[in-house]
């Protein structure tokens, strides 16, 4: 459950004082460039530079960062292997047969698989940057400034609050079950998890009922107010971000014909 504390790291990261709109521009801009690039070079550059910014400037522990990178690894490697064999185009690179079925890797499919791996890492590193440098509460202010329906933002904020309440419940129930050998076999694990789920739902519901009373007692009129405070935007930061994004776009554009195979 340690991963859940990404938001905790975001609360005390080195870039806390930078305006969240700039951080979102930086991360989302990089994701869009990653997606529009047709060769792996620009996404790889973005992955490397985003990792460097997150570890060096936002001061996120390197070990945590690399354990996070393992999450997209299994999905992207699985899917890239499928694409390596099913898509095609270009000259054959490798042909072999296993148990009567023949497999062929072509330059086209190898390029596509590599591009997808690079794009996933470019995209995930940019997403990690946003996740680790922008606390959720600032994203709410951003959503508010986009004029999303107030009821959706209120719902998101309440969910955000309850996630932490419920995680506390899960941890204590889970520990109590573990010390009673609740997870020592598959059958026991199923029983314990179901019990945890049921209790969690009931406790969550009670919390909700209590919240209604608390909110009514404080004159809740169907709208939660959000302290919207924006930080000072330094022109230097804007210039740096824009030039970084221009550099990435230039790299993506100029390397468009530099396929690996």
């Amino acid at each position: 459950m340690m991963e859940l504390y990404l938001d905790g790291y975001a609360q005390e990261n080195g870039l806390r004082e930078v305006d969240s709109r700039l951080k979102l521009l930086f991360g989302l801009g990089a994701i869009l460039i990653t997606l529009s690039s047709s060769t792996p070079w620009a996404p790889l550059f973005i992955a490397g530079s985003m990792a460097a910014v997150t570890i060096l400037l936002a001061k996120i522990p390197g070990r945590l960062y690399f354990s996070l990178l393992l999450i997209p690894l299994s999905f992207s490697v699985f899917s890239a292997i499928v694409i390596l064999f099913v898509s095609g185009g270009g000259a054959p690179l490798l042909t072999f047969s296993v148990a009567g079925a023949s497999f062929m890797v072509t330059t086209g499919s190898a390029n596509l698989a590599l591009l997808l791996l690079a794009r996933t890492f470019g995209g995930m590193c940019s997403l990690f940057f946003i996740a680790l440098s922008t606390p959720m509460i600032e994203i709410f202010s951003f959503m508010h400034s986009l004029h999303l329906p107030a009821v959706v933002i209120d719902l998101s904020m309440l969910i955000y609050h309850f996630i932490f309440v419920l995680i506390g419940e899960v941890i204590s129930i889970y520990n109590a079950q573990t010390i009673r050998h609740g997870y020592t076999s598959l059958k026991r694990s199923l029983r314990s998890l179901a019990m945890l789920g049921g209790m969690l739902f009931i406790r969550a519901w009670q919390q909700g009922e209590e919240l209604i009373m608390t909110m009514d007692a404080r004159c809740y009129d169907g709208k939660l107010e959000l302290p919207g405070e924006w930080k000072n935007i330094k022109p230097v930061t804007v210039a740096l971000i824009v030039s970084y994004l221009l550099l990435c776009s230039a790299l993506a554009y100029s390397s468009a014909s530099m396929a690996i195979f």
Partner: peptide
């Protein structure tokens, strides 16, 4: 939410419940 005042808090706890449930590792 307009009809029943308790819609929002109860949906919120359910959303949080879905999130926490989906972050549990299954055997």
């Amino acid at each position: 939410a307009g009809e029943h005042r308790d819609t929002l808090p109860l949906l919120a706890v359910s959303g949080a419940f879905i999130f926490v449930l989906s972050s549990l590792k299954l055997p």
